[in-house]
């Protein structure tokens, strides 16, 4: 009798739940500003430290810009993940999420989207940073943006998967990098190569790498959508 007139489809509820979780995470960030006040400065600091390690020789720094950019993104991803799942571990939010009746796949997509939004903001700042500090003039804006989007999707999907896996463990902070970094190694390789191609104005090569990134992102998004339910159940 209380059944809704139109039963929303599975994918409909999934996306609605994802939007709810994403909204929650973004609101949390707007109020606490941990990513803006802590992770963002950390990412810029990493760029400065790279300059110390490699000597402020513009030639080397410009040449290594794609790799350094993505390494900085990777390190910041770890921090953003620890923040994102630290929030869930405290006060039993994971149980609350499970009891809320939200679609697990929706929770996964929402968490991943939250991390992706944070990462994209970070990438904008880091992009400005390498242009300013390393003197790397960007070319091929379409390829750069596409690479950022595809690589971020892959990082966010893998990160969310491993984030919830290691959530609530005492060794979470040390285990997460060990689990995640070797798996996202292809993202580092492909994104670096795509950026290098864009900076060298040889975009043709770069699109191949973009293809790899897109496949990686879609694959792990699919794995996350299917694997999240058993993961939430048992935690």
């Amino acid at each position: 009798m209380t059944e809704p007139l139109v039963t929303p489809s599975r994918s409909g509820t999934m996306l609605r739940d994802a939007a709810l979780v994403l909204g929650k995470d973004l609101r949390l960030e707007l109020r606490s500003r941990v990513i803006i006040n802590q992770v963002l400065p950390f990412a810029v600091l990493v760029l400065v430290l790279f300059a110390f390690a490699l000597d402020p020789d513009r030639r080397i720094l410009t040449q290594a810009t794609p790799g350094l950019f993505w390494l900085a993104v990777l390190f910041s991803t770890l921090l953003a993940l620890q923040r994102s799942f630290g929030v869930e571990a405290a006060d039993g939010v994971t149980d609350a999420l499970r009891l809320s009746g939200l679609d697990p796949a929706g929770i996964f997509l929402g968490k991943a989207a939250g991390i992706a939004v944070h990462l994209l903001a970070l990438e904008v700042v880091l992009g400005l940073g390498v242009t300013l500090f390393y003197g790397a003039t960007p070319h091929g804006p379409v390829l750069l943006v596409a690479t950022c989007v595809a690589a971020t999707a892959g990082l966010a999907a893998v990160g969310t998967l491993y984030g919830v896996l290691s959530a609530g463990m005492r060794v979470r902070d040390t285990l997460l990098p060990l689990l995640m970094l070797p798996v996202v190694a292809p993202v580092l390789i492909a994104a670096t190569q795509a950026f290098a191609a864009a900076y060298d104005k040889t975009s043709g090569e770069g699109w191949r790498w973009f293809g790899l990134l897109a496949v990686f992102g879609l694959l792990y998004l699919a794995i996350g959508i299917f694997a999240f339910e058993p993961l939430l159940e048992e935690s």
């Binding site: 896996l165 689990l179 190694a185 292809p186 790899l212 048992e234």
Partner: peptide, 28 residues
């Protein structure tokens, strides 16, 4: 039980990851 469940998922991902890593590294 939690260990078995989570390890099974990681064990699967690890195996699925082998060809991706191999492919990207070969390409690289």
């Amino acid at each position: 039980v939690v260990r078995a469940q989570r390890a099974a998922i990681v064990g699967l991902i690890a195996f699925a990851n082998v060809p991706i890593v191999h492919y990207s590294v070969t390409w690289w």
